[in-house]
Structures are given as structure tokens and as C-alpha cells.
Design a protein around this nucleic acid. Sequence first.
DNA 1: ACGGTATATACCGGCCACCGTAATCTACCT
DNA 2: AGGTAGATTACGGTGGCCGGTATATACCGT
Lengths: 117, 117
Amino acid sequence: MQEPTFLILTALAAGPKHGYGVTQEVSEISEGTVTLRAGTLYGALDRLVEQELVTVDRQEVVDGRLRRYYRLTDAGAGKLAERARRLRKHAEVAESRLQARPNLALGFTADPFGACA
Amino acid sequence: MQEPTFLILTALAAGPKHGYGVTQEVSEISEGTVTLRAGTLYGALDRLVEQELVTVDRQEVVDGRLRRYYRLTDAGAGKLAERARRLRKHAEVAESRLQARPNLALGFTADPFGACA
DNA sequence: ACGGTATATACCGGCCACCGTAATCTACCT
DNA sequence: AGGTAGATTACGGTGGCCGGTATATACCGT
């Protein structure tokens, strides 16, 4: 499972949402660093439904447009919990190792050329 | 950057290592959940060298076999720090949302074997 | 009235990271 | 002699993500 998929599950962990709502939620969660493309979003949702980590909660027709709500299944919540724990552990190891690393990032930015937004 | 690549950078954050050593380190870091295949490992290392996140530290010939040591560059350390922070943030959001989720795990613990301290 | 933006979903080609496996060679142990 | 561990290289395949396009309606400013 990659980052976009993980963030989609996270977005749905707070309650059912429709596709477009997921996009916005993911943007917030990631502090604007991840913007889901339509292809990524619906492709991932289809896969997640197939794997039964997500189900269609309900469908509405608003202003002639279909609005499909997706909901996290218990299996999906379990998977997300597992992945979240893993990610956190990995992040912690990386950060503690970087801290132990003496030389770099003392008094100057880690991105001297401002390449990273 | 995906999980294998992130873990390779993390392995190198503790000091220079040769390819095979990275594989073992990654296995430890991930508590055995991630086992790097040769194709993944050397492919990723080549890409990282090209992106200048990693450099070849030195080469040795031991028992007639080449042993190439890789080292994290400052740019690589910066990139890793950035990604680690992101991963941790995402993991934290996911975990806090899952905790707030009522329904699941009623009547039984989410950690039946007490694995989580 | 017109154009732009926001809401919402569907489809499709292409790329690239990762996977899986096999090949190669040496040292060491049984 | 054969198997295991160390160590790297090469290569075809797959699948998730990217990017763009199409479709449709509502609302806003000009």
C-alpha cells in the first residue's frame, strides 16, 4: 500500500465520504503535500472496494450528479491500524538515527537550494 | 519515494553500508516485515546515487568479490528527515482517527496478546 | 449571455518503482 | 562433494500511480 492509498483510508477513518470529499480531506491531512488526481482516487477506491477494505455506504443523486459515499470496513480499519503502526515505527527509527548523525543541518536548512517548495 | 527506498535511506543513516548489509539492516528495522529483493535493492541504490541522495563511499575487494559501500549524502539526510516527519504525521493522524472510531473492537482488546507495551 | 470555477465521476495510455528469479563467484562448514 | 552464506548483476513482468480528457450541473462575476 502506497501513500495515496494510505491517506484515502485515513480520510475515511473519520466517517463515510464521497470521492471528491476524500480528495479534499487528503489534502488537509497531508498539509497540502499530496493532491489526489482523479485517476489515482477512483482507481484506488475501486481496488479498496474489491479488497473489501472499503464499501459503498450509500449513493445519492444531487443536482443530477451521482454522489457515492464510501465507508471504511472493519477489515479496512484493521489494515490501516497495522500500516499506521508500521509507518510510525519506521519514521521514529529514521528520525532517531538522523538525530544521532552529528554533522548535518547545524544552523542551516536541510534544503539549501529551496528545491522542496 | 516508497517504503523500500525509505528504509534503505534509514539503514544508511547509521553509517555507510554495502548492499547486502543494507538488506539485513532493513530486515531488522522493519522487524522482519520487509525483505529486500536483490532487484529492489540495487535498482533503488542506482536511482538514489543518480539523484545524489546516496554516494559510493568506497569499494573493497574481499575474497575476490566486490564490496561497494554506500553513504548517505547531506541531501539524502535532508530528504529522509522530510519524509520521516511526513510519515510520522500521517501515521499519527491515522491512529488518532482510529481511536476515535467507536464501533470496532467492542468487548475485546485490539491487542489481545499485549504486544503493544 | 458568456466564461470561469467548483462539484463529481469515469476512462485510458504510459511510466516507473518494485517484484521475482536466475546467474555468477568465493569461502566455509559438514 | 554438496550445501549454506556472502555479494552483486541482469532482466522480464506487474501494478499502482500519474496525467489528461470527457461529461454534466450549479454558481459567480463581468
